[in-house]
Design a protein around this nucleic acid. Structure first.
Lengths: 231, 231
DNA sequence: TTTAAGTGTTAAAGAGTGTTAAGAGGTAAA
DNA sequence: TTTACCTCTTAACACTCTTTAACACTTAAA
């Protein structure tokens, strides 16, 4: 049952990407290699990983931004940054996002392996996916994810499929931010302008459905995403 | 209850030792400073520590040897090596002993702090050092970092994400200066002219929000940074 | 004192979001 | 098939957050 650890590798340089990917496979890891940050987020949404190796400078979505999106919903997946920038100050932002380590190119394969193992040794890897309960108490409301409905004082409101997917995602991350692009890729399949606007419309719908209890707030975090909190 | 994390510092250079020790104490750690490996092992045996910072080259007993002794009885105490050697073979030897990280001198205090926090986050997961309390009393105000708001006499003002990040940083360093470039790299990701001007605008915003209590002052330290103090 | 760099502050520009309502597409019953 | 209904998307407009611009003032150094 203890399969080989799954690694998400985000690296736009084809040479280094191939090199790393082959090396890690030889060493017994299962590697998924994405060519840019956007693609990496796609992979992350669709699969589960034990560790992320992220290049900082990538087209479409840089490593820091990607890490934020990952951390928004998975706060304990280990993240190691790979970067050409040698300036140490840049490492600060990485650690702020919740990096576990930081390697400056060029680095040796052995050092990478050593640091990966050091990080993996610390992780409680058998933390499975946060499965939601059948009933979730949200202030005065009770939410039934499987039944796609919410109940307040015996009165029930039904969710449409998209409303329910959003609601589930927000509840899985209650009190923590859910990044826009993560939610879009997960529920809409694609992070485009119109899908984003559509999601905004759904946020308004959810707010209306939850408005009877003012202690429940569906906040926007400008440029980042959304957060459901109960005060 | 919320003890400060206890750090064992093994460093034979008196200058660096004092510097590190004082810096970490300021940052809220309890530091035990040993002048060589032998003394450090003595300390370790007599007490419990949350993290070990070990210089590699020390008289009497070197850092690697010390780490082995520590690991012999304490499998999961985080260990970070400090060393002047930059050769990677030494890095690997460090990791074989079970190191969690490795810093090459000279390193900045902030980077050390970031890496310490990254390691500590993995061990006692919710005892992050820079974690602020839920409520922070600031003169007549009460600041709620997670809720992104401040309350004065029942009236609340909400912070935007950037305002809140700045406010948190200033409160984590209440009474102490926060350097411009540190704040910029942490919150804006980059220390550029325009980001700096943007931060100045935010300082003005925070001053306005806090103006009802004149004992709270958000001072500028010319060319250095800012400082939040309560008189 | 003069000069350059740094800072305080306000206002406007630009990008992101809240909300409502109309449009497009689908499904099921008449 | 038509009709009614439902889900989701698109459009429009108002508003919020962040950055940029502008100008006045302060500090440090020559």
């Amino acid at each position: 049952m203890s399969n080989q650890p799954k690694i998400l590798l985000a690296e736009d340089d084809p040479n280094l990407g191939l090199l790393l990917s082959e090396f890690l496979k030889k060493k017994g890891y299962e590697v998924t290699w994405a060519n840019n940050g956007d693609e990496a987020l796609d992979c992350f949404v669709k699969d589960k990983f034990n560790l992320c190796l992220l290049d900082v400078m990538m087209p479409k979505k840089d490593g820091f931004s990607l890490a934020k999106d990952i951390r928004a919903t998975h706060f304990d997946v280990p993240i190691i940054f790979l970067t050409a920038k040698s300036m140490e100050e840049d490492t600060l932002q990485g650690f702020k996002v919740g990096a576990d380590d930081y390697l400056t190119k060029p680095f040796s394969m052995e050092v990478l392996l050593a640091r990966m193992e050091a990080v993996l040794r610390r992780t409680h890897s058998d933390k499975s996916i946060s499965k939601l309960a059948d009933e979730i108490v949200l202030g005065k409301y009770v939410y039934f994810p499987d039944k796609m409905k919410i109940v307040l004082a015996g009165v029930e409101q039904k969710f449409t499929p998209k409303e329910n997917e959003l609601m589930k995602l927000l509840c899985e991350n209650l009190g923590r931010p859910v990044s826009r692009s993560f939610a879009l890729k997960l529920i809409w399949g694609d992070d485009t302008y119109f899908n984003a606007r559509s999601m905004d419309v759904y946020m308004t719908k959810l707010r209306k459905m939850l408005k009877e209890d003012p202690s429940i707030q569906l906040q926007n975090l400008h440029g980042e995403g959304f957060r459901l909190i109960i005060e």
